[in-house]
Structure formats: structure tokens, C-alpha cells
């Protein structure tokens, strides 16, 4: 599904990703883990075309992605960003509509219904301004908006960030459920323990490089994990 080959990129002269290889196969949940500042968000920006590569390539669905967010969305690589980035001045319904601005427009009505079924709370808030939702509801909206583009692969960047422990639990259940419907998910998280519980495979990133990869079970059992995660 997604094949990332030795990508390098950064900001200005500073290289943040220093040759990253990773892949996501269809049907998988792949966790990309690491502490703050190791390059996870930069990786996501590169994948969704917001940041151009200095070298390496991103193959998605059998084709090389031309580095623009439009190309990524058109191909079905949908990125639900860290901090949600919903449209605060627009209603829940309008946020969802715009999720299908570039892709999935034909299925808009059907997909909105599907999102409301997945997130009954959003249905009660259809006309409410998105900026007035609670943190958990905003995260649901961000994921729902991503679903509107009929993703072939969903990248979730820190979906559990800033949520209460109960909501975090709910969020990971949801990720599992979406994956159960056949959607491959790349889960980018700081929450190592819970991510590994639901992921099939995982990559640990440290200083812009993959320092460890393997099945979730392998990674969980690895004594190096703590060292890598804490970056000590």
C-alpha cells in the first residue's frame, strides 16, 4: 500500500528525516512511535506532500506520489493532522462536507451518514460551530472529516493527544474498529503502550531514523524499547 524508501527532508538547512524506510501493507495498523522532536510530524508532512523531499521516494498504491497535498489526497492518502486542524468557524456538517472537497464528492451524502453512524455524538452537533466542540469531539470530527475522502490509507497523527484517559481508550478502540472494516492505518503516536496493543507492526523513530522495527509483539518484548522511546 505505502512504501517509503530512504526519504530525507528537513527545514531550511536542517535535516530532520535522515533516510527513513517504512511500509504499510493493506489491512494493517502500523504504529510509528517515538518521543517528541524525533521527526514524526515531519514524516507525516512529507507523506502528505506538505514538505518536499530532498531525496528518496514515496510509493503509494503502486505509484510514486508527486509531492503535493492535492496529489496525496487524490491518491487516497489522507492525513488527520496533529492538533486536529478542523475549521473552527464552520459547522460540524460543513467540516465533513469539506472532507470530500477533493475526493469522494460523489459519495458525500452517504459518507456523512456513515460518519454520523460511527460518531453518534457528532450527529447531535451537526449545526454547532466546530470550534466550540470539546477536545474529544474535535478529534472525532477530524477523523470523520478524513473518512469523508474515502481514504485508502489513513494517517492519524497523535489522535490521543490532549484527551482524558477514558477518551484515549475510546480513540484506540475506534482505530481498531476502522481497521476492522478494512482500512489500513498508520498511527503516529507517543503513546507507545496503547499503540502497540492495537498495531500489527511498529517502527520506532529516533533522531530522524528508524532504530527498531518489527511486529508489535516483538517490539513490546524488546528491552531496547524503553531506551529508544525515551531517547536515552
Amino acid at each position: 500500500m505505502l512504501e517509503v524508501k530512504n526519504i530525507r527532508t528537513g527545514y531550511g538547512g536542517v535535516e530532520v528525516l535522515r533516510g527513513i524506510d517504512l511500509s504499510v501493507a493493506s489491512g494493517e495498523i502500523v504504529a510509528v512511535l517515538g518521543a517528541n522532536g524525533v521527526g514524526k510530524t515531519t514524516l507525516n508532512k512529507a507523506l502528505s506532500g506538505l514538505l518536499s523531499l530532498t531525496s528518496g521516494s514515496i510509493i503509494f498504491d503502486g505509484r510514486e506520489l508527486a509531492g503535493s497535498p492535492i496529489a496525496a489526497v487524490e491518491a487516497g492518502l489522507i492525513h488527520v493532522p496533529e492538533g486536529r486542524k478542523i475549521f473552527p468557524n464552520m459547522s460540524v456538517h460543513e467540516n465533513l462536507e469539506l472532507g470530500s472537497y477533493r475526493r469522494g464528492r460523489a459519495g458525500r451524502a452517504r459518507n456523512i451518514e456513515r460518519v454520523y453512524e460511527t460518531f453518534p455524538k457528532l450527529r447531535q452537533r451537526t449545526t454547532q460551530m466546530a470550534g466550540t466542540l470539546s477536545g474529544g469531539e474535535q478529534q472525532m470530527l477530524a477523523i470523520g472529516r478524513g473518512m469523508m475522502a474515502e481514504p485508502k490509507l489513513l494517517i492519524l497523527d497523535e489522535p490521543s493527544l490532549g484527551l482524558s484517559p477514558l477518551l484515549v481508550e475510546e480513540m484506540f478502540d475506534l482505530v481498531k474498529r476502522l481497521n476492522g472494516e478494512g482500512l489500513p492505518i498508520m498511527l503516529v503516536e507517543q503513546n507507545v503502550v496503547q499503540s502497540l496493543e492495537i498495531a500489527h507492526r511498529a517502527y520506532i523513530i529516533e533522531n530522524g531514523q528508524v532504530t527498531m522495527s518489527g511486529s508489535a509483539a516483538e517490539i513490546s518484548g524488546n528491552p531496547e524499547l524503553k531506551r529508544a522511546y525515551l531517547g536515552l
Partner: peptide, 12 residues
């Protein structure tokens, strides 16, 4: 107008 990054991630 309010969320440039979110908009470009929707392919706008």
C-alpha cells in the same frame, strides 16, 4: 480563512 493547514490536507 481560519485553518490553512487543515484545508490543504483536504486537498484544497
Amino acid at each position: 480563512a481560519k485553518e490553512k493547514l487543515g484545508a490543504s490536507l483536504m486537498g484544497i
